[in-house]
Design a protein around this nucleic acid. Sequence first.
DNA 1: TGATGAAGGTCGACAATGCCGACCACCCCC
DNA 2: GGGGGTGGTCGGCATTGTCGACCTTCATCA
Lengths: 254, 254
Amino acid sequence: MPGSIQSLERAAAVLRLLAGGERRLGLSDVASSLGLAKGTTHGILRTLQQEGFVEQEPVSGKYQLGAELLRLGNSYLDVHELRARALVWTDDLARSSGEAAYLGVLHQHGVLIVHHVFRPDDGRQVLEVGAMQPLHSTALGKVLSAFDPVAHNEVAEGELAALTARTVTGSAEFESVLELTRSRGWGSDLEETWDGVASVAAPVYDRRRMPVGAVGVTGAVERLCDADGIRSRLVAAVRDCARAVSRDLGAGRF
Amino acid sequence: MPGSIQSLERAAAVLRLLAGGERRLGLSDVASSLGLAKGTTHGILRTLQQEGFVEQEPVSGKYQLGAELLRLGNSYLDVHELRARALVWTDDLARSSGEAAYLGVLHQHGVLIVHHVFRPDDGRQVLEVGAMQPLHSTALGKVLSAFDPVAHNEVAEGELAALTARTVTGSAEFESVLELTRSRGWGSDLEETWDGVASVAAPVYDRRRMPVGAVGVTGAVERLCDADGIRSRLVAAVRDCARAVSRDLGAGRF
DNA sequence: TGATGAAGGTCGACAATGCCGACCACCCCC
DNA sequence: GGGGGTGGTCGGCATTGTCGACCTTCATCA
């Protein structure tokens, strides 16, 4: 593979840096964080600003991400075929399960949420489209790790950080979780990511039978579980939804 | 102003092109659309793909926007101070008005929706965060055009496209609409953007009393209007919300 | 079935391009 | 008024990205 364009790589690094750090960053912060000369950094920031990818606070001179990114991110959703096919099915899933439904795809070292249906009959909720979830502790992430070799690579190379007391952190133990996920065809998360929160998910396949994402529901552990773990009614609803989306993508009958 | 970085400008143009064209584009399409050599275009696309800003469909070789844009767009929302301050107030506005509430800011030649609260007790709705609305026909857009000189410039330079039969397209007439908006302190849209849909909006100011955005509600014209136009109860609710957000931003009392 | 054209992708020479580091102007605080 | 921070500019240098010819593959079609 021939080399990449240096200035573009650096611009991308600037954007990621701005996305990571909570607060706004100054020119010198950016330059020193990336090990670039101030002049170089300024040129990149100036261009990014001109294009709308970065905004500068007039008073302090600090930089932050720009609105054009939001617009382009929205355009990404418009084109996303998996998401388009899943819209109606996830809506049904949320209604029939009474829980919030999510659609996630592998992105870098985590699960990117590309669609989120609010829990019916519940008040204030934050839309999580565009947010990332860990691969090793959520139901969506486990399903992707179990069925998508690329995701499996990602999770094998990373740390299994303990997010709650119940997070699986041993890699051998995690492999057996994935084995279980593969054998029964769905994944679960019982308070392994957030205390009091459980989730169930199942894989979505494209027309070549390759796993391309996962759908699932997330909610309070008291509602999702009974004495035997995840309620089987929910598991069935999630798997039905995953099958329906897969069929819509052309994966054919199971 | 010293020159911008050429390769970055071109990469931004590529992204905008991909965002604009509905379907996926091939390498040659992109190259010819932008008047670049194929080799150059390929280098840009390759780097953008490596960074996650662009994805390539393996089978057809076509390119489309990438997931990293969604993630960064989401990060933009996280940092957005106006949006953060407005979250709770727009929620109240939607509840008290019974309509969908929107928060918009000027971006390029239109209004970028940065927050959207669904209409209470209503079924399937599409989240419009990240979408753009025209400046000259929506309530949000008119408010921005009336109070923000930059927005006024933008709208003065562009076309006033007729979106419905009631859209104001004459520039003199439009100026008098802006004058009315300024004098009464709020803007309206009576089926000027979509048939059957009306909206009301009011300006939000920052701590230096500069207009930084607009909040409003949108809904069926039958619900929003009575015989005299927009229901005064709604106008009051919207203006209250705008004042509350402004106060949160430090604009002080009115 | 071979010819054909158009697709995506590669390569290497050339010089335009963007990089670097010294340098300004400004502000705040001691 | 100096010192130590900002963000921002400038010009010389060579690194860097550009260009256009070329390659491979694939689908079409005579």
